[in-house]
């Protein structure tokens, strides 16, 4: 497990060097030393370095106020950076903003829609705004995919929250973007709709769209993402492939259900940092999957020597949520 900030930094640096050497030529977004300071001196982003690869789903995790939306806003042109630069498809987002913005779609966090427009009109408006000529067939295709076709003539104000969220996605897709930003796409959305959203996102990925989603629902990142970045207090504390991250940082727990309950853990076993739970009926041993020796054999042997017998055992793996909480907690 990573235990100190220095370890995080080292870990992060390793992550960046890995990215730069492995897939630089596939990067669709390159962020270099990006910082954003709000007056008088609030650093919303601090020296962010990140590369997003073509066709991947990248999840940016972080608590509220971590800087996720600020980062997206800068890439999309809604907010100005204080320093650093961002390249989209190799082009600068400021000097070549037309080229970069034309291939980006954004689904904002808030349900910011026109109230009095119809679904069809608002989606068509966005397509025009991004420089595309009218294409009713394409708009129809998107609305059908998002199950909005029946609502195409309805005013947005008459739609439910979930439907409004779909409208925002339809708007973001209306100009056939190569990159799609989803800023907390399932915030406030019920479980069923959330799963629908995940399906939509997966479908988009299959068509070659690169997807960057921010979320603080860990299960969403775990379910969807190819890679995960964790941001806290404006700093990107790590970027890693989801599977590697789970492997590297994931801890496992061995739960031993005892035949006879214990009042306390014997002193001899202190080095294993066992937890006695379930009213003394269960011992929990947490071990590092990366370690050369997990200590399980020795523990079981010492338990036997101590006359502690168990009737069942099972292991469980820590979730991304545990990893995230640990990282952010230690960082703060």
């Amino acid at each position: 497990m990573i235990k100190t900030i220095d370890e995080f930094v080292t870990y992060g640096q390793e992550g960046f060097s890995w990215m730069q050497t492995k897939n630089t030529n596939r990067s669709v977004i390159q962020i270099k030393n990006l910082s954003k300071t709000y007056p008088p001196d609030f650093k919303a982003l601090n020296e962010i370095n990140l590369e997003i690869e073509h066709g991947e789903i990248f999840a940016l995790l972080g608590p509220n106020g971590a800087g996720k939306t600020t980062l997206i806003s800068i890439i999309c042109g809604i907010s100005n950076p204080t320093s650093g630069r961002v390249l989209v498809n190799g082009k600068n987002i400021i000097s070549d903003f037309r080229a970069t913005r034309a291939i980006i779609g954004l689904v904002p966090q808030e349900l910011t829609t026109d109230a009095f427009e119809t679904v069809w009109d608002t989606v068509s408006f966005t397509r025009g705004l991004f420089g595309k000529s009218r294409n009713p067939a394409y708009i129809e295709k998107i609305l059908r995919q998002l199950t909005l076709w029946d609502k195409k003539d309805d005013k947005i104000m008459s739609l439910s929250g979930g439907m409004k969220r779909r409208v925002l996605i339809a708007k973001a897709l209306s100009h056939e973007p190569d990159i799609l930003f989803l800023d907390e796409p399932t915030a406030g959305v019920d479980v069923e709709l959330r799963k629908d959203m995940w399906e939509i996102v997966r479908g988009l990925q299959k068509t070659g769209v690169t997807i960057i989603l921010t979320t603080h629902y860990i299960d969403e990142a775990e379910e969807m993402a190819d890679r995960i970045g964790i941001i806290s207090k404006g700093e990107l504390i790590l970027v890693e492939e989801k599977s590697t991250l789970m492997k590297k940082l994931g801890k496992k727990q061995l739960a031993l259900e005892l035949q006879v309950k214990l009042k306390k853990v014997p002193k001899k076993l202190k080095k294993y940092k066992l937890e006695l739970v379930n009213d003394g009926n269960c011992l929990i041993y947490t071990y590092d999957t990366k370690a050369k020796h997990t200590g399980i054999t020795a523990l079981l042997s010492e338990l036997s020597d101590a006359g502690i017998k168990f009737k069942d055992l099972n292991t469980s793996k820590s979730s991304l949520e545990d990893i995230f909480v640990n990282l952010v907690k230690e960082k703060t």
């Binding site: 999309c76 042109g77 809604i78 903003f97 037309r98 080229a99 970069t100 913005r101 034309a102 980006i104 954004l106 904002p108 910011t112 966005t126 705004l129 991004f130 420089g131 708007k171």
Partner: peptide, 8 residues
């Protein structure tokens, strides 16, 4: 946000 993020 739409106006600001559009290539315009």
């Amino acid at each position: 946000y739409e106006i600001l993020s559009a290539p315009i």
